[in-house]
Amino acid sequence: MKRLSLTPYVIWMVLFTVVPMLLVLYYAFTVPTEGGTTWSLENFTRFFQPIYLRVFIRSLNLAVISTLICLLLGYPAAMIMAGNAFKRKHVIMLLFVVPMWMNFLLRTYAWLTILERNGFLNSLLTFFSLPRVNILYTNGAVVLGMVYNFLPFMVLPIYSVLSKIDKGVVEAAGDLGANPFQVFIKVILPLSLPGVVSGITMVFMPAMTTFVISRLLGGGQFTLIGNLIEQQFLVVGDWGFGSAISVVMIVVILLSMAVMSFFEGEEKDVALW
């Protein structure tokens, strides 16, 4: 009887999750011909032209930079919040998460207000008679937008792993003669690796695929691979090519997840999400 309740969901899942994914594959591996469509790898070979490869490399580059900055900013933050610098830890964590609940688009738009030529930042600089800066519509602004939007994705998994570490282990290391630096390198860091891995995956993936941040804060049309996909579907109408790029992107993400889970080792306790 209870199995019956699964039926609507299974039908839904097949129709709206499985079939669409198969369609993406279908469009990626076929090209239209006069009488219909044929199987072909043309969409993929097109992607490896220098002009598109450059977009791909730029995306990869910006995503890696943003992920690194998130890690450098986020790890200490997670460590402090997991430690005992604050009495009401859960309030601090809640305060940390609240901005994430604001509409993603509005959060990105907010930086537009700050960075534009007559925006908040420049009026502040003028007020202190400092030279104005123009960073809107540059790669720097895109990285800033990514770090701003994705930083909590880095901090939260690291925080949750760090706060589960047995205090006794850390004390034992100290008792056995390790100095604080050694304790960190040899005990805390290895134990927190699963969180770092989840964090990196959770930042890298959206950073690699976003098209909104680059469109609002970055210059030019083909800034990132997400923009390229968007263009193919909504402007050019070349679904085959757009699907092929999506497939490449999924493969890259799966590969990076596989590499990451290799580093994650045996610890299976921490879910990716």
């Binding site: 669409p20 994914m21 699907s243 999506s246 999924i250």
Partner: peptide, 14 residues
């Protein structure tokens, strides 16, 4: 787990 844009285009294709 899918990137949002992939979910989006797959539904659009459907």
């Amino acid at each position: 787990l899918n990137p949002e844009i992939v979910t989006a285009i797959s539904l659009m294709l459907l």
